[in-house]
Design a protein around this nucleic acid. Structure first.
Lengths: 143, 143
DNA sequence: TCTTCATTTCGGATTCATTCCAGTTTAGGA
DNA sequence: TCCTAAACTGGAATGAATCCGAAATGAAGA
């Protein structure tokens, strides 16, 4: 299996997006911090460390673009910056109410809170299910 | 079954929260617009219409407090104001990518996108599952 | 290798939801 | 009716994210 980093770079090429030093630094930061589900600020700082010249605007624009092209997944929160996930496989995000860390729990497996507590050591207090797509009315409309 | 409005007011009393004209107006707005899953701005406007003297700060503080006391549920989005749900029963929020409307789809029922398309006429393009709670480390820690 | 130009980047200004704060009002128990 | 903690106000502050015009640059073609 190819490393995630090269995989992402190949996808950039496929989609006709340019490979710039900024994008490489952002890809690096995304892949290396993947288990932290990093946010824009963390990615910005990490990219800067690697001696790359990057602006925060660019980081935002790039993450947005990557999300739109389906290279990564954007996780949204209330009063907390968005986080990004390079793991596109089916999984549940387990989010700790206290420390805010985000853990992955892979599917298919039972989604019963009891099972999750037993297998992942995570006590579920609140669940959030959202299915995004197109409603009946919008499907009918042309445009 | 008691009407949702009285139910909420009773809960305020039970928790020792004061019944103010502002809170009554906010409860009204929440209940009457429940199917729109209203946001703070809509609730503010609705509450104002009912000749109530309310400030936006109060609406925010009240919605936050209601959420914390578990009277309502806060739904968070990216670049869109938070929305509030008075329906605390198990259900999936179906969110249209185009018009932004939020539909409820009750559980227990199959969560298979195919079944949802057939039964609710909603085509699922993206799913979001988040389980909030406490991680292993935080469970160990005293504090 | 050089030229060209659409794409990308920059950074400062802007937007907008939400929170904060200090002063004022008020619900509801005594 | 009085009293006090709780609730409310509105303007300022915060912070994530976007916008914008100008400058830089990747990469395709000569």
């Amino acid at each position: 299996m190819k490393r995630k980093k090269e995989e992402l770079i190949d996808q950039l090429k496929e989609k006709g997006l340019k490979i710039t030093s900024q994008r490489l630094a952002i890809v690096d930061a995304l892949v290396e911090n993947r288990h932290d589900h990093p946010g824009a600020t963390l990615i910005f700082n990490e990219a800067r460390k690697k001696s790359a010249r990057v602006s925060l605007s660019t980081v935002y624009a790039t993450l947005k673009e990557f999300s739109e092209y389906g290279l990564i997944r954007q996780l949204e929160f209330d009063r907390m910056e968005n986080r990004y996930d390079v793991d596109l496989s089916d999984h549940v995000n387990l989010i700790c109410n206290r420390c805010g860390k985000i853990f992955d729990y892979s599917i298919p497996a039972s989604l019963e809170p009891r099972d999750i507590a037993r297998k992942a050591g995570f006590v579920v207090t609140d669940t959030r299910l959202e299915f995004h797509g197109y409603c009946r009315d919008c499907l009918k409309r042309p445009d």
